[in-house]
């Protein structure tokens, strides 16, 4: 039996990179991979999704009830398709983590969240205790429901595939509207998405104010980087919540992660420890972040950041 991968996309018709990582993870299960696109007005996205590498079939479920991907109708929909699948895989992002466990409740399965490694078709590795420990788990469920981290599975290519598109005609009736969509407040940013950026530069409480994040932005401009933050910086109101990197925020693994004025709490490390190269800038030589960095500079960010910006410009 095959594996079904729930696709996640941005408003504005971009399939998220984590969806492509989920397809790549699903490919390791050694069976046919189908993708499921759920939403409303999906013509453009269906064409894009059908070209993703690694999928043989694309299922499309289009209905106004799915426009905002609320867990109640979407889980009902996937449950109606689940009979044909041995595995159901979702990205471990806000959407997947909302929908997949609800589906598990409907199907009476113990879901497996945040999978970072597929050992075989029933054995998986997932982080626990804010990522400080890795657990190897074996599922006895006949149907396996997995959410997968984008950071450890290389994304499949956006084009080059040629999946057959199958529109789902028999959508389950959603008679009762348990939740009603009211409003979406998107953070506006011209920068790359945190989870897919090649370089991420994050600030901590030591940034002292939201205004001082301009210093990080100037460096981000030079490196086409995304900007992140520690929970402390977000809680202090310096930057919006969706900047947060860590156990309860975004999980990132860029080529280069620059941590500025950020102590390195275990909950923050959970969100960036898989980065290829980590640089720490902190005035406290005892800051734990230095122990988890490849390179560190001890000093005042207000002196170091302008120097770094100038050096990057001069490249």
């Amino acid at each position: 039996m095959a594996v079904l991968v729930l696709l996640s996309y941005e408003k504005g018709d971009q399939i998220r990179k984590i969806s492509r990582s989920a397809i790549s993870a699903a490919g390791k299960l050694g069976t046919e991979v189908h993708a499921l696109l759920v939403g409303d007005h999906l013509d453009g996205l269906s064409q894009k999704a059908s070209q993703l590498q690694g999928i043989q079939k694309l299922l499309v479920a289009e209905h106004a009830a799915y426009a905002h991907m609320q867990a109640e109708p979407v889980a009902d929909l996937i449950a109606s398709l689940a009979g044909s699948y041995e595995f159901i895989v979702a990205p471990a992002n806000a959407e997947g983590k909302d929908i997949l466990p609800r589906l598990a409740g409907l199907l009476d399965v113990q879901p497996i969240s945040d999978v970072v490694e597929m050992i075989d078709a029933s054995t998986f590795v997932r982080p626990i205790y804010a990522g400080s420990i890795l657990a190897t788990v074996t599922s006895k469920d006949a149907k396996k429901l997995l959410s997968v981290r984008g950071t450890t599975f290389e994304a499949v290519a956006e084009t080059g595939g040629n999946a057959t598109i199958e529109k789902i005609e028999n959508l389950p009736a959603s008679d009762k509207q348990l939740s009603v969509f009211k409003e979406l407040k998107l953070s506006q940013s011209d920068r790359p998405e945190l989870e897919s950026a090649r370089v991420v530069i994050s600030g901590g409480r030591g940034m002292q104010s939201g205004e001082n994040f301009v210093l990080l932005e100037k460096i981000a401009d030079q490196l086409d980087a995304a900007i992140g933050a520690s929970r402390a910086a977000v809680d202090a109101g310096f930057v919006p919540n969706d900047y947060q990197v860590g156990q309860t925020g975004k999980i990132v693994a860029p080529e280069l992660y620059v941590a500025v004025a950020l102590s390195g709490a275990i909950q923050h490390l959970a969100g960036m420890k898989d980065s290829k190269i980590v640089v720490a800038i902190n005035k406290d030589p005892e800051a734990p972040i230095f122990k988890v960095s490849d390179y560190g500079i001890i000093g005042d960010l207000f002196e170091i950041l302008p120097q770094l910006e100038a050096a990057l410009k001069a490249r």
Binding site: F181, K185, P240, N241, K250
Partner: peptide, 11 residues
């Protein structure tokens, strides 16, 4: 949520 916040009304 991933790119910001969402407001829903639940019954």
């Amino acid at each position: 949520i991933d790119d910001g916040q969402e407001i829903l009304e639940l019954t």
